[in-house]
């Protein structure tokens, strides 16, 4: 019968793994903190339409978002049921788009400004009227690169 040998004197002392959890926790916290999705608190419902011919948006720092949709239940008493648009965390009027774009532009590097993209995240059921108004405002604001945000159709 094989018996376990008693630790000889010459054996390597076991490396203490007590600090391993700390290291891993550090990694964990790093990921938890750094991947805070800059998710705005949506007051409106946005279900993106589907499309097949889509392009990925690279460089998130260059993208500003405009959300369009009907207010969710909790806000319907205050905002009604007509589609509204949301910039950052506020429900805004279409005329605020110009200010919003110039504020976003301020935040960017000089060199990045030509690559600035505006992503329109609009609900499927929205009518084109509001989208067209937004597009006109974007043209006024000289933000000509736009992206209609869609989901990938499987």
């Amino acid at each position: 019968m094989a018996r376990f040998k008693r630790k000889g004197k010459g054996g390597m002392p076991a490396i203490s793994t007590a600090s391993l959890p700390d290291i891993v926790f550090m990694l964990l916290f790093f990921f938890m903190v750094s991947t805070t999705m800059r998710e705005v608190d949506l007051k409106i419902r946005v279900r993106l339409p589907e499309a097949t011919e889509i392009k990925k948006l690279e460089k998130k720092s260059l993208v500003s978002y405009i959300y369009v949709g009907a207010p969710i239940k909790a806000y319907q008493a205050k905002l009604g049921t007509e589609p509204r648009l949301q910039l950052n965390d506020e429900i805004s009027a279409v005329s605020d788009v110009v200010n919003y774009i110039s504020a976003e532009r301020e935040k960017m590097d000089e060199a990045d400004i030509p690559f600035m993209t505006t992503s329109i995240k609009a609900d499927m059921d929205v009518k084109m009227g509001i989208i067209t108004d937004i597009k006109q405002e974007l043209r006024k604001a000289q933000a000509l690169k736009i992206n209609y945000s869609t989901r990938k159709k499987m």
């Binding site: 959890p21 891993v24 926790f25 990694l27 964990l28 990921f31 938890m32 991947t35 999705m37 499309a51 011919e53 889509i54 392009k55 990925k56 948006l57 998130k60 993208v63 993209t117 992503s119 597009k135 974007l138 043209r139 006024k140 000289q142 933000a143 000509l144 690169k145 736009i146 992206n147 209609y148 945000s149 869609t150 989901r151 990938k152």
Partner: peptide, 27 residues
């Protein structure tokens, strides 16, 4: 801790923004 780490890595797949890119005509 690894389990937690992997859980976070997997669940925080940031939804890649994608869409149809268009250029508006200048006014």
């Amino acid at each position: 801790a690894f389990l937690l780490l992997i859980f976070f890595l997997v669940t925080t797949t940031m939804d890649v923004d994608s869409g149809i890119t268009r250029k508006l005509p200048p006014i």
